[in-house]
Amino acid sequence: MYNIIFYEKNDHVLSQTRESVPEEGDGIKLKGRKGNVVSVETGEDNIVYILVDLAKKIKE
Rank of each mutant, 00 (worst) to 15 (best):
M1T: 09
M1K: 09
Y2L: 09
N3H: 12
N3G: 07
I4D: 10
I4R: 13
I5A: 10
F6Q: 05
F6T: 02
Y7E: 04
Y7N: 05
E8K: 04
E8M: 05
K9H: 10
D11Y: 07
D11T: 08
L14W: 09
L14C: 14
S15Y: 02
S15M: 04
Q16S: 15
T17F: 05
T17M: 03
R18C: 04
R18H: 01
R18N: 02
R18K: 11
E19V: 04
E19G: 11
E19Q: 09
S20K: 15
S20P: 05
V21G: 01
V21M: 01
E23Y: 07
E24A: 13
G25Y: 08
G25N: 15
G25I: 11
D26C: 03
D26L: 01
G27N: 02
G27K: 06
I28E: 04
I28C: 08
K29M: 01
L30I: 06
L30Y: 07
K31M: 08
R33A: 03
R33Y: 08
G35Q: 05
G35R: 11
G35L: 04
N36R: 02
N36P: 02
V37M: 02
V37E: 00
V38I: 10
S39H: 13
V40A: 11
V40Q: 08
T42D: 01
G43S: 09
E44P: 15
D45V: 01
N46H: 13
I47V: 15
I47Y: 10
I47N: 12
V48R: 14
V48C: 12
V48D: 13
Y49S: 08
I50W: 05
I50E: 00
L51D: 11
V52N: 05
V52A: 00
L54C: 04
L54M: 11
A55I: 02
A55K: 14
A55Q: 12
K56R: 15
K57E: 15
I58H: 09
I58E: 10
K59E: 08
K59N: 12
K59Y: 10
K59M: 03
K59C: 06
K59T: 13
E60N: 15
E60K: 15
